[in-house]
């Protein structure tokens, strides 16, 4: 009796109500996220023995993933491509975010943001496929360049290699980079800029010494948001990457569906998570140090 009244009392507190209210969603996440993630970590320590799975704990998959040159080069390439995509996307995005934040009338800003986000909501598969059309040997990019007399014969280095993957992913993740940078630029107190100029800085120096440093957290957030999904992208390398542009996700798929080696697939997936996690951690630490050094 006293126990049940204690329980119902706990239910009436804020903490109890909050926990009850969030429990369906939390349970769902535990069931469909925590349990599966735990099981692939577990699976990565087992080995495939022809048709059955050998459940003795072993690090064999990991040592194979780290020593086999094929896996090593794939992981290295995934990181390289993802970092180039991040750099290209953020560099291209910054001027746009700056333009919308500083040069567009406030009433027009949400329209610009809407325009920027629309392409992102359209079918990802089709967008990637169209890049294959655009970059093709007889596609519009080569056609235009030849028509303008810039080149004599079609460029072959823009399709079916890692360059194509970088271009296509830089397009696909553009809004992810623009929005965080825009938000950090919007937060900048405009009177700082006036103060800098009143104190004799040129416009350019104001940008480098006031605006840019204050936008760094947004830039790092943008880098994080672009980097994470691109490491594990499957569609783009498959459609425009050719054989020289395959990435880790393609290998994970091949292990599970074509080679029927689920433990190795799980190992590569865990490896991918470790890679993403460590780069993400480095970026978060960098952001923290930056903001602390500033404040």
């Amino acid at each position: 009796m006293s126990q049940s009244s204690g329980f119902s009392k706990a239910l009436r507190t804020d903490a109890g109500k909050g926990l009850i209210l969030i429990s369906p969603t939390a349970l769902f996440a535990i069931l469909l996220l925590a349990a599966p993630l735990t099981s692939i970590v577990l699976l990565s320590f087992w080995t495939q023995n022809f048709l059955t799975i050998d459940r003795t704990f072993t690090l064999a998959n990991y040592s194979e993933a780290l020593t086999d040159p094929l896996y090593r080069s794939l992981m290295l390439r995934s990181v390289k491509i993802s970092l180039s995509v991040t750099a290209v996307t953020v560099l291209l995005a910054f001027p746009i975010a700056y333009f919308v934040s500083f040069h567009v009338r406030p009433s027009r800003k949400s329209l610009w943001l809407f325009l920027i986000t629309i392409p992102f909501w359209t079918s990802y598969l089709i967008r990637v496929f169209l890049w294959r059309v655009i970059l093709a040997y007889d596609g519009p990019v080569n056609g235009t360049l030849i028509g303008l007399g810039v080149i004599d014969e079609p460029l072959s280095w823009i399709l079916y290699n890692s360059n194509a993957v970088v271009i296509t992913l830089a397009h696909a993740f553009a809004p992810f980079a623009i929005l965080p940078i825009f938000v950090s630029l919007e937060k900048i107190d405009r009177s700082f800029l006036e103060a800098a100029q009143d104190l004799g800085e040129t416009k350019l120096m104001t940008f480098f010494r006031v605006t840019l440093p204050l936008a760094v957290p947004g830039v790092l957030a943008a880098a994080l948001i672009v980097m994470i999904p691109t490491v594990g992208d499957y569609v783009t390398p498959r459609l425009v990457g050719g054989s020289g542009g395959t990435m880790i996700a393609n290998m994970i798929y091949a292990q599970i569906f074509d080679l029927n080696d689920r433990p190795m697939g799980a190992t590569l997936a865990v490896g991918g998570m470790i890679i993403v996690g460590s780069i993400a951690l480095a970026l978060v630490l960098l952001t923290r140090r930056w903001t602390r050094a500033r404040s």
Binding site: L33, I40, I228, P229, G232, I252, I256, A269, M273, A280
Partner: peptide, 10 residues
């Protein structure tokens, strides 16, 4: 913040 392929494969 998890690559979708990880969610899918797990």
């Amino acid at each position: 913040v998890l690559p979708e392929i990880i969610v899918a494969i797990s």
